[in-house]
């Protein structure tokens, strides 16, 4: 039986907490009663195979989808009751990257800044630094419709960082990004977490999550199958095991043994 979430006045040390979060589409249950606990200031890696429900979970948490059942508490607030107040504190890189194709990169950033009420001089300074970091300075005046996928991803990341959020939701942030930018973004995310910000990140690249995340949750077929601090997870699953091995154990992935697909490469 699930207990109600504590009120905002009760400090829990959690940036994000859900209880029985469920989302269905007709007969299909995409997210099935998950209880997430993301400590404030943590770097939380949210893993799962394709179609496990990672993106749907992020959409529910960021207000793009309404949960069918369950409770959520983000930074001590109920996002369903106070959506605008919660969104003021969030930065999101969603699956579809959330950018106006017919606006330039700079105009997209300017839209985000003004919706968040950033003063002009603050925007100018932050936008300049972010565009330089993402190596998008030359493309700032180009329509996003003419951007490559990697450029869009970087701009979406810049838009998420711009209002200096307290909690970042990043859905596959490194997919399609070059090595140089990827390294800089990783450093930026780590320093963001060290300064007290919280990162909630999904990725298929387990090495990235293993290197960056201090907490991990694994979702499989809509259910949260394991969750906890990375060190605890490693300690509980045997000496010297990698995240990949833990992940494969948890989701029960099949393996291709030497006898399979003999015709391949013959």
């Amino acid at each position: 039986m699930s207990h109600p979430l504590p009120s905002p006045e009760e400090p829990t040390g959690l940036a994000l907490e859900t209880r029985g979060l469920t989302r269905t589409f007709g007969d299909f249950t995409a997210v099935d009663g998950i209880d997430l606990r993301v400590p404030a200031g943590s770097f939380y890696g949210f893993l799962g195979p394709n179609g496990a429900g990672k993106s749907t979970t992020i959409k529910c948490l960021t207000g793009l989808l309404r949960p069918t059942r369950g409770e959520m508490r983000i930074l001590g607030l109920d996002p369903l009751a106070e959506p605008v107040a919660v969104k003021r504190r969030l930065g999101v890189v969603p699956e579809d990257l959330a950018l106006f194709g017919r606006l330039t990169g700079m105009e997209n950033l300017s839209f985000v800044a003004r919706v968040h009420g950033l003063p002009r001089e603050v925007f100018d300074q932050r936008a300049g630094e972010l565009l330089e970091l993402m190596q998008l300075g030359d493309a700032a005046g180009t329509l996003v419709a003419d951007y490559s996928h990697g450029m869009r991803k970087k701009l979406s990341l810049a838009a998420a960082f711009l209002p200096s959020p307290r909690l970042l939701f990043l859905d596959e942030p490194f997919e399609g990004i070059d090595a140089v930018s990827s390294r800089q973004i990783k450093r930026l995310l780590q320093s963001f977490a060290h300064r007290g910000g919280t990162v909630f990140l999904t990725s298929h690249v387990l090495e990235i999550v293993e290197r960056l995340a201090d907490h991990v949750g694994i979702i499989h077929r809509g259910r949260l199958v394991t969750q906890g601090a990375m060190d605890d997870l490693r300690a509980g699953s045997g000496e010297g095991r990698t995240l990949e091995e833990i992940f494969l154990d948890v989701v029960g992935a099949g393996t291709v043994d030497d006898g399979g697909l003999e015709w391949l490469g013959g």
């Binding site: 105009e107 300017s110 030359d138 005046g141």
Partner: peptide, 30 residues
Amino acid sequence: PRRTEAGSLPSLTLPGLSPVATVVAWAQLR
């Protein structure tokens, strides 16, 4: 891609509208 000067959305707030509603209007027009 055609590169133009990297200008942001106009900062002029339209009379009778909140700054947020104004930026929605500018974004749609552009």
